[in-house]
Write a protein that binds this DNA or RNA. Sequence first.
DNA 1: GAAAAATCCTAGTAAAATAATAGGAATTAG
DNA 2: CTAATTCCTATTATTTTACTAGGATTTTTC
Lengths: 150, 150
Amino acid sequence: MKLSTKGRYGLRALIDLAVHSEREPVSISSISARQNISERYLEQLVGKLKRAGIVKSVRGVQGGYQLAKEAEDISVGEVLRALEGSLEAVECPGLKEEQGCEEADFCVTKYVWKRINDSITNAVDEITLKQLVTESKKVNHKMKNRNCGG
Amino acid sequence: MKLSTKGRYGLRALIDLAVHSEREPVSISSISARQNISERYLEQLVGKLKRAGIVKSVRGVQGGYQLAKEAEDISVGEVLRALEGSLEAVECPGLKEEQGCEEADFCVTKYVWKRINDSITNAVDEITLKQLVTESKKVNHKMKNRNCGG
DNA sequence: GAAAAATCCTAGTAAAATAATAGGAATTAG
DNA sequence: CTAATTCCTATTATTTTACTAGGATTTTTC
């Protein structure tokens, strides 16, 4: 029941990227240096963000990445799902009305799984990248950007 | 970010146990037969519930398990934590006031991790075993106890 | 008191998932 | 042309999960 390094590093990296790419694209190597995450691993994580339409890339010398849309239009949920795949703590076919497992009507635990899943979804979907960037800038008046929890 | 079979099977097993142990203790082998979970694996899961003070055991022939307290006094959170260990999606030292990692004051992602953790905790702690047992009995008027999602 | 039904305890192991590492092709500014 | 960069895919080491297994202990029943 843990968020993997994909989600933890990836969100950190994206905040760093958002903060530093306002004027020009920011490279994997510079995020790697600031955040102390392997370049090669970061490449994969940012690749997922790109495929999800959260960041866009510029290839070649002085290339790098920038947000593909406004930070206020990017939810943390969207980011974590891009990085981790589904955030559902339990994937129970009975939770999806259309199909449903044969036993769904008689399944009691599904109410628990649904509440857990919904609570996670609500929590992450109501935070925007913009909020984190704003918070990050506040904090960076005091110190270079650092993060814990991954 | 998935709940493991420990939590999924274990909660199913505990509901089954609660429903069937009102008069006399219920054995691992009977839960195993009804829920179609390996006896040997169930043994381990129920052992965790016992060590957590959720169920109590009676050894020897005609022995088995019963709830150690009222079903309404057992929260799903307590059960899942006994089975899975901490339910925190991210274990960040910065979230625990006392110690905190050196960088906690400058850590932006911790707000996200805290909200995810709190939302999971709230969701599971407000459901009681009693509610699930009641629901289960309703459903079992129609059919033998069955469960999905694990 | 022997047999059977049960819990209890610990160790081992196969499979899956995670967390990287690695190699190299393609693109583009200077 | 060269260097800096993204892009794509494979491989591998480590960790975690999900069991399986063996056998000791307790207690009822005959």
